[in-house]
Design a protein around this nucleic acid. Structure first.
Lengths: 199, 199
DNA sequence: ACCTGAACACCGTTCAAGT
DNA sequence: ACCTGAACACCGTTCAAGT
């Protein structure tokens, strides 16, 4: 076995902000946000909880900020998006489907996204949506409004899906009937995209 | 002073679920969700924290469920909404503005709303939106989709507003320029409402 | 019926100390 | 530079006890 300088005496990779964030996300996805504690996170990383503070001096606040950035910052890959897609509307539709999937995959992080924490995290995402709309022919102001409307719809819809598919929603589904969330999302998305005029 | 049977020996009103929820909301609005603890809530109610469990046996979970219901359950006042408004589109617009104001007033509860907790809390709201759209002439399926799209937009936009107006967003506003959120919300709302066909 | 007090098993974080 | 161990001030909640 080749010597690996990155591996320390205890034969495990050293701590890093990335590894910490990933371990935290794994705990959230598996057990829920409420069970993410510094001590449990330390256990998952095979380290004392206090070691985390060496990499995240602001502690748990900084950890949650990092999670918001990790999940929420998904720009639309500006150069590639328009080339691969059949027009800007299709590019936005693809982005929206991807972003929704990302949010639902890490639904436990959603509560952190609807908070004032790490406000810059979604800036790049909004900017890239706005730019696609501008290249689609929209003036500055309507493009900015449409970008926010689209992002708001995707965020809000993810929230409704989380609520509607929760375990406790079984009684709800019994009275209201089951909902096909994929269809519902696509329908709402088309509603929003069709309201954006040019194209 | 007239004798008040509701007032006990310590000369304060007895605990009730409503008073507990209102005190909790007051703490959240003033200090943030993170500072809502059973002990602090007890202090605010001039009672030991453990007394709360007599009214909310499931403890903090039940308290948070109640907060979701209190803030999130705002149906569109079906009988009155259409009479007072100039058509269903105007009725939905009014509801959306009211609901947004409510969410922003209690922004600290928003993270609880994007969770699977108390899934029934928003059912009445969705149902009344759907009914307005039906009375506007929409068939069942498009009405259900449009109701969800509208609610998703309002929820998601409130989230974006919370992020955009956070203290930490000052640097963001410096680079991106300030946003008029009222205008932005109205623009997005019109976008969504205009996409809903009849009327 | 309604509330209290003490206790338990946890939290996040500081700080001095180890290597 | 990177991590540990002990300690502190909090948490939510249980349970027996008071009135």
């Amino acid at each position: 076995m080749v010597r690996q300088p990155q591996i320390n005496a205890q034969n495990r990779p050293p701590l890093s902000t990335e590894r910490i964030i990933e371990a935290a996300l794994h705990i959230i996805d598996g057990q829920g946000l409420g069970r993410l504690t510094m001590r449990r996170l330390g256990d998952a990383l095979e380290v004392e909880a206090m070691a985390i503070y060496h990499h995240l001096p602001r502690g748990k606040e900084q950890l949650l900020d990092g999670l918001v950035a990790h999940v929420g910052a998904a720009p639309a890959d500006l150069p590639g998006a328009l080339e691969r897609a059949a027009g800007w509307r299709d590019a936005l539709r693809r982005w929206a489907h991807d972003y929704r999937a990302r949010l639902l995959e890490h639904a436990g992080v959603l509560p952190l996204l609807v908070t004032g924490r790490n406000p810059a995290a979604l800036a790049e995402t909004t900017a890239s949506l706005r730019e696609i709309l501008r290249q689609g022919g929209l003036p500055e102001v309507p493009a900015a409004a449409a970008a926010h409307a689209l992002l708001a719809f995707v965020l809000g819809h993810a929230a409704l899906e989380v609520r509607g598919t929760a375990e406790g929603a079984a009684a709800l589904r019994a009275t209201e009937g089951p909902v096909d969330w994929n269809t519902r999302f696509s329908a709402g998305l088309d509603l929003v995209l069709n309201a954006v005029n040019p194209g």
